[in-house]
């Protein structure tokens, strides 16, 4: 077989990355064993890239016991979409794509303006896809360090038949005895990397030598400075009166909706340099990069209650 005798035998103790990895693998296998029809949400972003490596560790040499699915807002960076398709093909796993464009065509999503952020409406397309395929569990790459609503969410997060998260009515979660039971129509969102931080993700990407979309590394890009954020110029974002376009070295810390995901100034061209920057950075990941999370103190909480990831 394709095995190499490993250094792990000589390892003197169990590192925090080993502990987080083992926990996440255990969680994925629990989903595979207990849920009838799970799916793994894969966007091409760094957190879901990590999820795929964890799934390889959990299930190889078998195929994954679930398909991959992406909810495409239509506002994704082309490099990320390209990477998504490349990675799914490389793994030989089935990728389902459901697009918000279809939800808009069918009148399920009504936008106020053509170019507005589509993040808030992802839940509609996601919930439609869940019912189309009858998924009872969606594995996602959310982390508790991202946001305070996430900090209080379970690893196995129960959603009612409307897809809603009720923060006051969560199932107690003790030890690693997860409760994956649902009635028809309900589902569980499962977050295997709940306990990982942004830094852990980068350290793991470095350790496992994972490929990620190119826009995570520093590159030259046209940006507009708006409200002390850098906005990437695209067909969705054009300079307003009085604004000027600058060409800067930037990288993305998250890769979401092009209209509201901001890069940060950076010279980091490889994982090691990103780890250094991440360790030294003084602004939270979402604070730096997501305009939509700044709208109100509770924006993530509200979105989650409506069925968002």
């Amino acid at each position: 077989m394709f095995l190499n005798q490993n250094k792990m035998n000589q390892r003197s103790y169990f590192t925090h990355l080993d502990a987080l990895e083992s926990e996440a693998i255990h969680i994925m296998r629990e989903v595979a064993a207990e849920c009838a029809n799970p799916v793994l949400l894969f966007s091409g972003g760094k957190d879901s890239v990590v999820l795929l490596r964890l799934a390889e560790k959990a299930f190889r040499p078998s195929h994954f016991p679930f398909p991959l699915m992406h909810i495409d807002t239509g506002h994704n960076f082309p490099e990320v979409i390209e990477f998504r398709d490349y990675r799914a093909k490389q793994l030989g796993e089935r990728l389902i794509v459901r697009s918000m464009e279809d939800s808009i065509q069918r009148g399920r999503v009504i936008l106020r303006s053509k170019n507005q952020s589509r993040n808030p409406f992802q839940a509609v397309t996601l919930l439609d896809a869940i019912s189309e395929f009858g998924f009872d569990a969606c594995i996602g790459g959310a982390r508790r360090d991202e946001e305070k609503a996430r900090a209080k969410e379970r690893i196995f997060s129960f959603r009612d038949e409307f897809g809603q998260w009720d923060p006051k009515n969560q199932r107690p979660e003790l030890w690693s005895l997860y409760n994956a039971r649902t009635h028809p129509g309900e589902n569980i969102r499962v977050f295997p990397i709940s306990n990982w931080t942004e830094l852990d993700i980068w350290q793991y990407i470095g350790r496992e030598q994972l490929e990620i979309p190119s826009i995570y590394y520093a590159h030259e890009r046209d940006v507009i400075v708006r409200n002390s954020s850098l906005l990437p110029v695209s067909y969705l974002v054009q300079p307003e009166a009085g604004e000027s376009v600058q060409n800067m070295m930037v990288r993305f810390r998250t890769v979401g909706d092009m209209s509201c995901t901001c890069p940060v100034a950076s010279q980091a061209r490889d994982v090691e340099e990103i780890i250094v920057e991440t360790a030294l950075t003084r602004i939270t990941e979402r604070g730096a990069t997501r305009m939509d999370d700044r709208t109100s103190e509770a924006s993530m909480e509200l979105r989650k209650r409506e069925g968002y990831f």
């Binding site: 925090h16 508790r144 360090d145 305070k148 609503a149 900090a151 209080k152 923060p167 006051k168 969560q170 107690p172 709940s194 306990n195 931080t197 830094l199 852990d200 103190e297 509770a298 909480e301 509200l302």
Partner: peptide
């Protein structure tokens, strides 16, 4: 360690919140 909107509105505290920090020695 302030809580969620749901907690502030209703003056309740939702059971467990998880927080993370690293030092060079431990996570």
């Amino acid at each position: 360690t302030d809580g969620l909107q749901a907690e502030r509105e209703q003056g309740i505290t939702i059971d467990v919140a998880y927080r993370y920090f690293n030092t060079p020695k431990r996570k």
